[in-house]
Amino acid sequence: MGASFVQFSLTPMLIGVLAAIACALPGNFLILRRQALIGDAISHVVLPGIVVAFLVTGTVATMPMLMGAGAAALVAVVLIEAIRRLGRIEPGAAMGVVFTALFAGGVLLLEQSDTSRVHLDVDHALMGNLETLIWLRASGWDSVIDPVALSHLPPELPRIAGVAALMAVLTVIFWRPLKLASFDEGFARAMGLPVSAIGLGLVIAAAVAAVAAFDAVGSIIVIAMFICPPATARLMTDRLTTQVWLSVAIAALAAILGYVLAGYGPIWLGFDSAVSAAGMIATVAGLMLGMACLWGGARGRVGVAPGA
C-alpha cells in the first residue's frame, strides 16, 4: 500500500466505486418500476451520441462528448415513448427497436468518419479504460493533501464524484415522491403527484449517471451497476431505505473487489498480465446477485415462501 498503490490503483478504484454508486442509486427505483432495461438502452445509445458530438465539434473534448451522449439518451427515451404510444407496441420491443437502430447508426458513423486518429472505438465504449485513469503525479499518500499533485488528478475523478453526489442529493430530495410513484403509481397520482414528470426525471437522472460513468468505465459497468446491486439489495430486505443503503454498499464492494481481482488475481494465479477491470467488476456484482438469489432473506415474492 505504498506510493505505487496511490499512483496506479487509488484513482481507478475510487472512480470505479463512485461510478458504481452513481448508477446504483437511480437503479433502485428503475428496478422497482420495472424499467431496469432503460439503463441497457441508454448505454447503447451513448455511442451514437458521442460520435455525433465528435463529428459536430471535431474534437474529443469531454464536455461536447458528454452533452452529445446526454442528448442521445434523451432522444432515445423520447423515441421509445413515441413508438410505444403511436405504434401501440409493448415497451420492451419499442426499446429493442430504438436502441439497436441508434447503436447501428453510431457504428456506421464511426466507420464512415475519419476517427482513426483519435481514440474513439467501439471496444473502448464497451469496456471503458478504468486501468488507464492513473495519477502519475502522486508520490505517495502525502499527495492526497498536496495541492500540486491534486491538480493532476485524472479529470474523470472529480466529474464522477460530482455526479455521484448529485445522484445522492436528488435521491434525498425526491425520496418521498420517488418512493410513492415507484410502489403505487395510482395512489401517487391520486395524491396529486406529477407521476409522469417523476418518471421522466428519473430516466433523465439515470441518463446523466450513465453518461458520466460511461465516460470513465465503459458501458458494461453501467448496465451491471444499474441492475445488480439494487437487485441484490432488493432480495435482502423489504425496506426501501435499507435497500438503497445496501445497494450503495454492494456497488462499492463490487467495484473494489472487482478491481483488485482484475489487477492482482491473475498475478496470484501465476499469469503476468491483468484482465479487464470493468468486466471483472460486473462479474463480481453478478456473483453477489447470484448469492442473494440463493440465500437472500427477502428473495421470495410477498406471500410466497422463499424457494417455494
Partner: peptide, 13 residues
C-alpha cells in the same frame, strides 16, 4: 439486465 451485463462482463474478462 443482470444476466446480459454480467455474462458480457465475464466475457470481456
Amino acid at each position: 439486465g443482470a444476466v446480459l451485463s454480467v455474462f458480457f462482463g465475464f466475457g470481456v474478462v
